[in-house]
Amino acid sequence: MSRTYHVLIVCADGAATSTMALVALREGFEDKGLSVDLSQGRVADIALTVEHGNYDAIISTAGTDLDLPRDIPIFSGIPFLTGIGKEQLLEEIIKTVQK
Rank of each mutant, 00 (worst) to 15 (best):
D37H: 07
A16P: 12
E51I: 04
A16R: 10
I84A: 13
K95N: 09
D45F: 10
R70V: 07
R42P: 00
A12W: 09
A24P: 03
G33A: 02
I72M: 12
L38W: 11
D37K: 00
E91M: 07
A44L: 10
T19K: 02
N54I: 00
D67I: 03
S39I: 01
F29G: 12
Y5N: 06
T64A: 04
I93A: 09
T4R: 13
G85H: 10
S18E: 03
R3D: 08
G63V: 02
T17G: 09
A47R: 14
V36D: 02
E27G: 03
A62G: 01
T49S: 14
G85W: 12
S76R: 01
G33N: 08
S39P: 02
A21G: 00
Y55H: 02
I78F: 05
V10R: 09
V97I: 04
K99T: 04
R3F: 09
S35D: 10
I46P: 00
T4I: 13
F29P: 14
P73T: 12
A44R: 08
H52F: 06
A57R: 07
E51G: 13
Y5W: 15
L22V: 02
T64E: 06
A62E: 11
L25H: 06
V43Y: 00
T82A: 10
A57S: 04
E87Q: 14
I59E: 02
G33R: 01
P73H: 14
S39E: 12
T17I: 00
E51Q: 12
V97E: 05
L8A: 04
F29E: 08
G28K: 11
M20V: 15
L22N: 13
T61L: 10
D45H: 12
I78D: 02
G33P: 05
S35K: 14
L22H: 14
V97W: 00
L89P: 00
Y5K: 07
S76V: 01
T64I: 13
V23S: 09
R42K: 15
K99H: 08
T19D: 11
R70K: 15
M1N: 10
S60I: 11
D56G: 12
I46H: 06
G41Y: 12
L48F: 08
T19W: 00
T49W: 07
G53M: 00
Q98C: 11
I58P: 06
D67R: 05
